[in-house]
Computed example of a mutant assay.
Amino acid sequence: MIRVLVVDDQALLRAGLRMILDNAGDMEVVGEATDGAQVTAMVAETAPDVVLMDIRMPDVDGVAATRLVRARTGGPKVLVLTTFDLDEYVYAALRAGASGFILKDTLAADLLSAIRAVARGDAIVAPAVTRRLIERHIGTGDDPLPRSGRELGALTEREREVLTLVARGLSNAEIAGRLFLTEGTVKGHVSKILAKLGLRDRVQAVVLAYECGLIRAGA
């Protein structure tokens, strides 16, 4: 069973999410929180696998709560709920450690698939969507950017090439076609890139590629 903590300040939405998740068969809602300020204590109390996190809440918002959750050793994964796919808070939530985001009007089946993916350790944000977020926020002064690019020195030429294509929004299959490789080989390269750079998933890899200047926003 996947243990899920639901965090949202709207009671009606929490009730709807609980109904969907409890009927999934492989998920259990272990708690509900109405504000980010409650999240840390509830994570300690309920030990969820995934926190379904609203991004906009009145006191402690989802970005700050995500940062606190992901700072815990062995803490749960965070899947952000948002109203708009270019919400100005989503980029900050990804940087804070969220494994991705979904829209509040998503279909129930897609919501369940996203939770399962995040519980497995995958990132569920499509790279092209992540790229749009980054292009909107890189260089706005909201973060201490850019990085120097020294982080990329550990990568081979092929790995840098793969990372560039990942950051441009290509899937593993598309990268394989572009570079005349098998999809399994591309997956292996992506895994090595994440390990060498100490990154959690390809979302963080895309962010790092932009911050290091490997590709430029809007390019």
Rank of each mutant, 00 (worst) to 15 (best):
R160G: 15
A44F: 05
T46L: 04
M19S: 10
A173K: 10
L52Q: 02
R120V: 05
T185Y: 10
T82R: 08
E135V: 12
A93Y: 11
G198L: 08
D61G: 08
V4T: 05
A64V: 15
S99E: 15
R120L: 08
R3F: 02
L163P: 09
G121T: 04
A71F: 03
R202Y: 09
V43D: 02
A209Y: 04
E183T: 10
I55S: 03
E183R: 15
M1S: 10
A128T: 01
D59N: 13
L208R: 05
H189M: 07
T40D: 03
D61Q: 09
L86D: 15
R120P: 09
M27W: 08
E45R: 14
G36V: 14
T182C: 04
G62V: 09
E174T: 06
S148T: 15
E159K: 01
R18D: 09
R150A: 15
R200N: 00
V203G: 14
V162M: 07
T73P: 07
G218F: 02
P76R: 00
T73W: 02
G177L: 13
L107I: 00
L199A: 12
G25N: 06
I138E: 14
R14G: 06
L133V: 07
D54R: 11
L133H: 03
A96W: 07
D35N: 13
V166E: 00
P146E: 08
R216L: 15
D8E: 10
E174M: 12
R116K: 09
Q10P: 03
D8T: 06
M42Y: 02
E161R: 14
K192W: 00
K77V: 05
A71S: 12
V80Q: 05
E32I: 08
R168K: 13
E45K: 14
L86A: 06
L17M: 13
E28K: 15
Q204H: 13
A205R: 07
L199G: 14
V207I: 15
L179C: 03
C212L: 04
V206K: 01
M57Y: 14
G198C: 10
E28D: 09
L5R: 05
I102Y: 05
V7I: 12
A117V: 03
G75A: 09
D143E: 12
R70D: 02
A64G: 03
A117M: 01
P48I: 12
Q204R: 02
I134S: 14
Y91F: 15
L94D: 00
Y91P: 01
A92D: 12
D143H: 13
G31W: 07
T73I: 12
R18N: 06
N23P: 00
A15T: 14
A108E: 14
G149K: 08
R178K: 13
L152N: 12
A117N: 04
T82W: 01
M42G: 00
T82I: 02
R18W: 03
D9E: 08
Q38D: 04
E28W: 10
A98V: 04
V203N: 13
R150N: 14
T130P: 02
E28P: 01
V6L: 11
H189R: 07
I55T: 03
T46P: 05
L52R: 00
A37Y: 01
R14A: 14
P76A: 07
R131C: 12
R70E: 03
V203L: 09
A176H: 00
G74W: 06
E32K: 08
G121L: 11
D8V: 07
E159L: 05
G25D: 13
P48V: 11
